[in-house]
Amino acid sequence: MITPALHAAVEAIMREASERAILPHYQSLAASEIDNKAVDDVVTIADREAEALLTQRLSALLPEAAVVGEEAVFEDASVMERLKDGLCWIVDPVDGTNNFAAGKPPFGVIVALADRGEILGGWILDCLSGRFCHAGLGTGAWINGERITARTTGESTPIAAISTIFLDEGAREKVLTHIAPHYRLVDIPRCAAEQYPRLLLGTNDISVFNRTLPWDHAAGVLLLNEAGGKAARPDGSAYRADEYERRDLIGASSPSLWDDFAKIVAKIG
C-alpha cells in the first residue's frame, strides 16, 4: 500500500498546501482571519484553505479513502466515525496553529493514512525549514530522504518534554513531585510536527501527550516506532487512530527509556 510513489505524491501535495495556502498567510494574518475554536485554541484562514486543498488532492490520489480533517471534524463531529469504517486519510492542515497565528515557529502539516484505525503511513512537513519526515508500516522512517534511526540525547539525566497545560492541579503536582526528580523537564513546542522529530533527532528523550487526537499523533507515532523508538499508551497498548476518545500517550527515543518512564507513571497512578 505505502509505496515510494505514494510517499512522493503525498509529499508533493503537502508542499503545495504549504506554499499555496499556508506560507502566504504567515506573519500577515488580519484579525478577521483568526477565529477562536475554544480557550487557547484558534483556527485561521490558512487552516481552512490548506485543509480544502489537501482534501481535494488526497481524495484524487486515493478515491477509495475517506478524509478526516481537523477542521471538518470541528464543523461536524460525526466525521470522526470515518476512522472506523475503512481506509482513511487523517489531515492536520496547520499543526501548531497557535504558533502560526502568533507569527512564530514551529508549525507544520501532518497527514496519515489508516485502515480501520491501524496506521499505515505518516507524513510530517515543517513548513519553514522544509524538513520532511515520512514512514510506512513495516518499511522504516525517513527524514529528508535518508533513513533515520531514533537516537537519545545521551544525557545522564534524560530530557522530558511534558506539558502541564491540560493537567488539573493534582496531576500537575504528581509530575513535579514524582517525575521531575528523574528528568530534566523542558517545555513542549505546542506542535506535534516538531515534537515527534525531536525524539528522533536527539533533542528530547521523552514526550508525554494528554490529548491524543489522530491528526496530531497518528503520523508521529508511526514515525517514532518505525525509527526504533517507542510510542504507546501508558499501559503498553498500541496507539490506534480510531480510539480517539482515549487520553495519554508516551513517546520515547528508545524502548528502554519508554519502559523506565512508564514504570514511574504506573507507580504514581
Rank of each mutant, 00 (worst) to 15 (best):
residue 232 A to Y: 06
residue 236 G to C: 11
residue 172 R to P: 01
residue 131 R to T: 11
residue 67 V to E: 03
residue 40 D to G: 13
residue 260 D to W: 03
residue 264 I to S: 04
residue 81 E to L: 14
residue 36 N to I: 12
residue 17 A to L: 02
residue 22 I to D: 07
residue 34 I to T: 15
residue 241 A to S: 15
residue 70 E to Q: 06
residue 257 L to E: 12
residue 26 Y to H: 10
residue 142 W to V: 14
residue 180 A to G: 11
residue 144 N to I: 07
residue 225 N to H: 11
residue 126 D to F: 04
residue 98 N to W: 01
residue 222 L to Q: 08
residue 106 P to Q: 05
residue 214 P to N: 02
residue 184 R to N: 14
residue 58 L to P: 08
residue 207 S to R: 03
residue 16 E to C: 05
residue 108 G to P: 06
residue 147 R to P: 08
residue 205 D to E: 02
residue 261 F to R: 05
residue 53 L to G: 06
residue 167 L to S: 07
residue 200 L to W: 08
residue 4 P to E: 00
residue 263 K to R: 14
residue 35 D to E: 15
residue 89 W to A: 13
residue 145 G to D: 11
residue 48 R to K: 15
residue 213 L to C: 06
residue 132 F to K: 07
residue 181 P to H: 03
residue 19 E to P: 02
residue 151 R to Q: 14
residue 125 L to E: 11
residue 260 D to V: 07
residue 232 A to I: 08
residue 41 D to P: 00
residue 72 A to M: 14
residue 118 E to D: 15
residue 85 D to E: 15
residue 101 A to P: 00
residue 242 D to Q: 07
residue 154 G to T: 06
residue 2 I to E: 12
residue 252 A to H: 05
residue 220 G to A: 10
residue 138 G to W: 11
residue 185 L to T: 06
residue 144 N to M: 10
residue 174 K to W: 08
residue 146 E to A: 14
residue 168 D to A: 00
residue 99 N to H: 00
residue 235 D to Y: 01
residue 179 I to R: 10
residue 5 A to T: 04
residue 251 G to N: 03
